[in-house]
Amino acid sequence: MVSWTPPAEGAAEEVWNWLAAVKDPEIPVLTIADLGILRQVTMDGDHCVVTITPTYSGCPAMNTIEQDVLSVLAEHNVEATVETLLDPPWTTDWMSEDGRRKLEAYGIAPPAETSASKRAIWGEDPTVCCPRCKSESTRKVSEFGSTACKALYQCQDCQEPFDYFKCI
């Protein structure tokens, strides 16, 4: 499910494709397009307006992402402004399939269910697979991990400690 659509043609499409390669500074295997942080590119004459959305209110990566977007566009001599859009709020459901695969290969378990699931909010924890040995026998070490978007887990079979990308 995505709430945005990449522009289909023209200069906006070209800009989108450049920006789709910008890496998330904290999870550098994912791009801002994989994460669904890049929301919209529109052209107003020669001026480009890029809309991004924060994953978490206090996500310290947002300033870096904004700077990275502006420097990519500066390299292409495109004058641009970056706008932040809060509504609708970012959800892990916007992460691309490709992004989920890259995340797992990198050693971070992707979100285990959709954000609409009641269980993801209150009650039992979802079944999280170990990204190393694929075991389902894992335990949550902490609700919060190295960044706001992750929780800490450990595999009960291979003992690997790993990050889990939380559903929100």
Partner: peptide
């Protein structure tokens, strides 16, 4: 780390 994450949400 958990509490620092919660604090960051509030500062945001």
């Amino acid at each position: 780390i958990a509490l620092s994450n919660v604090a960051l949400d509030y500062i945001g």
